[in-house]
Design a protein around this nucleic acid. Structure first.
Length: 154
DNA sequence: GCCAACGTTGGC
DNA sequence: GCCAACGTTGGC
């Protein structure tokens, strides 16, 4: 099983939005970055666990845990000219963009701020993709050791 | 609001 | 295929 970290701007879609969503589930549309797409399309498996991360907000950090509830399928918002994430280059017969579904697992007892993760950036979390210099990827892998170490910070 | 990092676009 | 310009991300 793989582990992941997925960023969301809480103004846009927060862990509470996921918790209160119908079926406590949502589709992760709008990813328009090839590396992030490849993670979803090629590596995400049903049951994989995900750190839900709040970005671009007052206190960025990990706020909860979700699970991949449906593996990659075409992101239909790319086909809709009225959609914010419309991409005329994505052909329904050969989709360029994909999405997965995630389901709510739980909120952390207390969120783990980015600043806390950074405290371990030269030790246990030395290789955490999220902390790599200037990383803006919205979906990043977390290896098992990193996953359990981060959970121990909760 | 600033700005560094960095992915994408498009002219050549 | 190079690379400058441009747009976006996201911490601060």
């Amino acid at each position: 099983m793989n582990h992941w970290l997925m960023k969301s701007e809480p103004n846009d879609f927060s862990i509470d939005d996921l918790r209160t969503a119908p079926g406590r589930e949502t589709h992760w549309d709008g990813v328009r970055n090839y590396q992030a797409r490849n993670f979803m399309r090629d590596q995400m498996k049903q049951g994989d666990l995900v750190f839900f991360y709040h970005s671009n907000c007052a206190e960025p950090g990990i706020t909860g845990i979700a699970k991949i509830s449906r593996e990659a399928y075409p992101d239909h918002t790319a086909f809709n000219p009225k959609d914010k994430h419309y991409d005329p280059k994505s052909d329904p017969d050969n989709p360029r963009w994909y999405m997965v579904n995630i389901s709510y697992q739980r909120k952390l007892n207390r969120m783990i701020p980015l600043s806390k993760l950074r405290e371990y950036s030269d030790r246990q979390l030395k290789n955490l993709t999220l902390l790599r210099r200037g990383n803006r990827l919205s979906i990043t892998p977390v290896n098992a050791k990193e996953w359990f170490f981060i959970l121990s910070l909760e």
